[in-house]
């Protein structure tokens, strides 16, 4: 035994402390937290790539996995958005500006932003699937000249379920972004000015050209399934379509053994995959 003698212990499970700088209520059950590192050196030195995720923790309650929803181009802080569904997210939702939480990360791979340069980008998000895309959207917008057309198709069950409403308004106003927002039939309000219809339906109506285009999509599994079908109809190949998967995670580091889909560990080999990769996976999701 003793293949390797450890001289200085690394505690890979030890989180960094982060202070909540801002709390934004996105929907009745969804919040965004802006966090900055307590440790000043980390505040300066922390880097990540769009698509990566982390383990956020409330001390005394536990850890929870979400993507980093802010752009790596925005230094000094990170943001996460989450829906209050379980034990940790409920505790997180109860916190306020100034409270301290734990963060481990960044983990996982990232969107192939270098490959996307010089291409049209079509973002397709559904519901709480927008946060991982948001990181990349802002990343692209902050380097706007490096990309061609940027189109965002975002849908939610109802108007109330749309996240990042302020940013949606901003993107709508920007001449260099084409935003299409939609809500499921019945989810509209009298003053709703967007589309009404499921995301795949609207997508087929938009009929984007597959030429020189990358699609990045994230949303509920059922939406992804039909979006992939629609993209197929529109002539997109599976290598042009990128998605980010999620599964129950604990360590985020390929050790705890629960996020695998067949033989692929989402935390370590993902969470970003092309549609071609997803189609090759074991039907274990």
């Amino acid at each position: 035994m003793a293949q390797q003698v450890v001289t200085v212990m690394e505690n890979i499970y030890l989180p960094h402390l982060m202070v909540i700088q801002d709390v934004i209520e996105e929907t009745p059950d969804t919040k965004t937290l802006r966090l900055h590192f307590k440790d000043e050196a980390l505040r300066e030195g922390f880097t990540f790539r769009a698509g990566q995720f982390g383990e956020y923790s409330v001390f005394g309650v536990g850890e929870c996995t979400f993507c980093i929803a802010s752009s790596p181009t925005r230094k000094g802080y990170i943001e996460c958005s989450f829906r209050k569904v379980g034990r940790v997210t409920s505790a997180l939702a109860d916190l306020d500006v100034g409270d301290v939480i734990g963060f481990r990360g960044p983990y996982g791979n990232s969107f192939p932003i270098e490959d996307m340069k010089g291409k049209n980008i079509l973002f397709i998000g559904g519901g709480i699937g927008l946060p991982p895309l948001r990181s990349l959207i802002w990343n692209c917008l902050d380097l706007r000249e490096e990309f061609k057309d940027i189109t965002i198709l975002y849908g939610a069950r109802s108007v109330a379920d749309l996240v990042y409403k302020r940013e949606l308004a901003h993107w709508e106003e920007r001449p260099d972004v084409h935003l299409v927002k939609t809500v499921d039939p019945g989810g509209e309000t009298p003053d709703w000015d967007g589309e009404v219809g499921f995301v795949p339906t609207i997508l087929e109506k938009m009929a984007p050209s597959p030429e020189n285009t990358y699609v990045v999509t994230c949303g509920p599994p059922i939406m992804i399934k039909f979006v992939l079908q629609s993209l197929g109809h529109l002539g997109f190949s599976d290598d042009q379509v990128i998605t980010t998967l999620e599964n129950k995670m604990k360590c985020g580091l390929g050790k705890c053994g629960r996020c695998n889909i067949g033989d692929v560990y989402i935390c370590k080999e993902g969470p970003v995959f092309t549609a071609a990769q997803v189609k090759k996976m074991y039907r274990d999701f």
Binding site: A2, Q3, Q4, V5, N11, G254, K255
Partner: peptide, 16 residues
Amino acid sequence: SRFRDDFYLMREGVTT
């Protein structure tokens, strides 16, 4: 610094 679980490895290091 990221992927080595020293809780395991350190124990292994003192085990014969």
